[in-house]
């Protein structure tokens, strides 16, 4: 059972930040997901934007329509309701499970061999361990659609590269410390690349725009190169990688 009490702090003239915990925890993530939707519903047009993250929610409100007293009150009410609910509902009830296919290989995962070598594991073991855990989406940020998933098995945790790459291809599946992620678009990046995922993680024209949201659960499933291509995956961007 996590600590149910929340801490609300001022962030800015029109923002409050709500802390649910001080550590990464699947149950906290689930509660943040529930509370985010509930706060959004409760504030209605008074809400400008909302940022759920690992253990907090930043609530940005329209300070011409409401104030921090009223918003705090709404947040406390919502949080109290969510804590009484989570006592009666099974854990993980609210985060949907999304399975993302990954083409793990030396070709699609240029850092796979170094990571395995440093970990004292075989490449197959690394691939196996990466798939063994059901991850939580703890936060979305850094770039549009970039979902921070945690936490990977301690054995395959790996520090960021000393020199970040200028171009990481779209769909790259990567590890940094105990986090893993799928790059939603080509961008610079310093994470260790271990495979490629053909599922678009961010598509402005799709509904929903992202297949996952904060608090959801994600599983990875290995697929063949042919299956990767059949699912629309592209290998051409790999030419730039070393």
């Amino acid at each position: 059972m996590t600590n149910q009490s929340i801490v609300i702090s001022v962030a800015g003239e029109n923002s409050l930040i709500v802390y649910f915990s001080d550590k990464v925890d699947a149950e906290v993530a689930a509660r943040i997901k529930t509370c985010s939707s509930a706060i959004g519903l409760a504030l209605g047009r008074h809400l400008v934007d909302l940022i759920p993250s690992y253990a907090s929610i930043l609530v940005i409100y329209d300070s011409l329509l409401t104030d921090h007293f009223a918003v705090s009150k709404v947040i406390r009410t919502v949080a109290a309701a969510s804590s009484s609910q989570s006592n009666t509902l099974p854990a993980n009830h609210d985060g949907k499970l999304i399975t993302l296919p990954v083409y793990y290989s030396l070709e699609s995962g240029p850092d796979l061999s170094a990571l395995a070598e440093n970990a004292g594991l075989s490449i197959d073991q690394v691939i196996e361990l990466h798939q063994a855990i059901e991850y939580r989406v703890y936060a979305i940020g850094f770039a549009p659609g970039f979902a921070y998933l945690g936490e990977v098995d301690q054995r395959i945790a790996a520090p960021r590269l000393a020199t970040p790459r200028l171009k990481v291809p779209r769909g790259a599946v990567a590890i940094a410390d105990r986090q893993t992620a799928v790059y939603p678009a080509q961008s610079p990046g310093g994470w260790n690349l271990i495979g490629l995922c053909p599922t678009p993680m961010f598509d402005a024209k799709a509904d929903p725009i992202m297949p996952v949201s904060t608090g959801d659960r994600v599983a990875f499933k290995a697929i063949s190169k042919q299956a990767f291509i059949d699912l629309g995956g592209k290998l051409d961007a790999l030419g730039d990688l070393r």
Binding site: A11, G12, E13, N14, S15, I17, D22, K23, V24, L50, I51, P52, S53, Y54, A55, S56, I57, L58, I60, A139, G141, Y148
Partner: peptide, 10 residues
């Protein structure tokens, strides 16, 4: 800190 939301002017 654990990554968290950043507001305007932070």
């Amino acid at each position: 800190i654990l990554s968290e939301g950043i507001c305007q002017g932070a």
